[in-house]
């Protein structure tokens, strides 16, 4: 049986302490800049906050992973290098990287610190994963959310590193690290600036009939009737009209979250080493609820008991959940 580590999100120092106390094996977080893919206003850590957070987590036996998982624009690598140097000085347990240049810098400058390959690298074949392992010493790959469990089991036998998969949270459906939808509408890049649907470009408009529309850079992404559950204002989960669908429809994906709690035993058996909970932009309340539920489930499975996963539907986007491609390739 794999160790089944729980990798939990923290957008603030208080959320990190919450995750640690709720039973995280490791917490992942980022700095307040474009070096990570949750570069949201008011979120993330200053170097001083990260230093204190690492001390807190280590005192309780929890690891801290620093996300440096965006792509530096060509020739502008200093911010990423400085972030890596700061993280190394503070003593983080691993860096989560997507860009080969960033991986190369860390492999050369801080060879004693583990490298994890971010989902943003979109490495989904044994050949791609082996390339990162052989050239940069990557110790773990976070798999894109496009693989079935049999495929994960097969990949496991063909790569020399650990596997981490997402288990709960927001579920983007484009090729990870390659989506340019936000860039197209707002001029900001998800993959280089670290933000999808930047809050400064989002507006919610109310209508006389009680419905609400969400807009990004002036484009309407969705309109929810008064009784309808809402989702994030992300373009991939927008509802659009088209000549053949004048009533409006989810052209790519509905507002929905990934929830693999029921597949946890199978994933552990398939050799997945670590399970990632998405949601650095979410509240302490979310972190506490989701981490506690998965902590209890993993402990039950390790002890040979039936896992009784709490119902987490209230925390899902649009209050809908899916097992996505993990269950079947027919998803979308």
């Amino acid at each position: 049986m794999s160790l089944a580590e729980l990798i939990c999100p923290a957008g603030t120092p208080a959320a990190l302490r919450t995750a640690v106390d709720a039973g995280a094996d490791a917490v992942y977080c980022g700095f307040q800049d474009a070096t990570n893919a949750r570069n949201f206003p008011g979120l993330n850590f200053t170097p001083d906050e990260l230093r204190d957070a690492v001390a807190f987590a280590h005192a309780k036996g929890t690891k801290v992973l620093l996300a440096l998982n965006t792509y530096p624009p060509a020739g502008k690598v200093d911010l990423w290098r400085q972030a890596a140097d700061t993280g190394a000085r503070i003593g983080v347990d691993a860096f989560i990287v997507a860009d080969m240049g960033v991986a190369d810098y860390i492999a050369r400058s801080h060879p004693g610190i583990r490298l994890h390959l971010s989902v943003q690298a979109a490495a989904s074949s044994p050949e791609a994963i082996r390339y990162y392992c052989e050239n940069f010493g990557v110790k773990r790959v976070v798999l894109p959310r496009i693989l079935t469990i049999p495929e994960i089991r097969q990949i496991r036998t063909e790569i020399p590193c650990e596997i981490e998969t997402f288990i709960f949270g927001n579920h983007g459906l484009m090729v990870e690290g390659r989506c340019s939808l936000t860039n197209y509408l707002t001029g900001q890049s998800t993959n280089m600036d670290g933000v999808c649907s930047p809050a400064s470009d989002v507006e919610y408009a109310r209508h006389a009939d009680g419905s609400m529309s969400s807009q990004l850079a002036g484009f309407t992404i969705d309109r929810f009737s008064p009784e309808e559950k809402a989702g994030y204002p992300t373009i991939c989960k927008g509802r659009y009209t088209a000549p053949h669908r004048p009533e409006g429809y989810y052209a790519f994906e509905e507002p929905v979250s990934l929830n693999l709690s029921r597949l946890l035993p199978e994933l552990i058996e398939a050799g997945v080493h670590a399970f990632k909970i998405e949601g650095r932009q979410r509240s302490k309340s979310y972190v506490r609820g989701v981490v506690r539920a998965f902590r209890a489930a993993v402990d039950d499975i390790r002890a040979g008991r039936q896992a009784n996963i709490a119902d987490l539907i209230a925390l899902t986007e649009g209050q809908k959940q899916t097992q996505g491609a993990f269950e079947t390739k027919k998803w979308r």
Binding site: A14, T18, P41, P198, A199, S200, V202, E203, Y204, A205, R206, M212, F224, P226, E227, E228, K229, A230, G231, Y232, P255, Q281, R282, S283, K284, S285, Y286, R288, G289, A314, L315, T316, E317, G318, Q319
Partner: peptide, 23 residues
Amino acid sequence: AEEDGDAAFFSRDLDVSGDTEAV
């Protein structure tokens, strides 16, 4: 932090308007 803001937004119990970045 007894409730999650995003969940309250998804369920439509919470309503935000104006400058989203400020919120």
